[in-house]
């Protein structure tokens, strides 16, 4: 599988990364090189193999339902690039 320029644009859009027109061709070449490299996986027979999604082989611990956090709005907002009072602020969204 190799990427055409339309797909490169679509991925960039999905990933919310602005890509300028002159960058498209370079990105296309680089991404196709990586995809070409991983192509060798096609040679592996994985019939009947259960996928492994994590590095840890155990069941999940469950936490007790107690309030132990929050009440730190100042710290939550301290790094915000823009805010209105105690809210985060972004350019207006039209639904």
């Amino acid at each position: 599988m190799s990427l055409d320029t339309a797909t490169v644009r679509r991925i960039a859009k999905l990933a919310r990364i602005r890509v300028e027109e002159p960058e498209i061709a370079t990105l296309q070449t680089e991404l196709n090189a990586i995809l070409g490299y991983v192509e060798q996986l096609n040679a592996v027979d994985v019939t009947g193999v259960e996928p492994l999604s994590g590095g840890a082989q155990m069941a999940m611990r469950l936490r007790e339902d107690v309030v132990t956090d929050g009440g730190i709005a100042d710290k939550i907002l301290a790094n915000a690039p823009d805010r209105e009072g105690r809210f985060f602020a972004v350019p207006k969204v039209v639904e």
Binding site: R63, D65, V67, D69, G70, A73, R86
Partner: peptide
């Protein structure tokens, strides 16, 4: 209905001052 959030220890109570029931995990 629970005291705290699904994946953090912040309160699940409705309402409150903006961003009061928020942990770094939630944000």
């Amino acid at each position: 209905v629970s005291e705290s959030k699904l994946f953090s220890g912040a309160s699940a109570t409705y309402g409150g001052e903006p961003n009061a029931h928020v942990s770094f995990v939630d944000a």
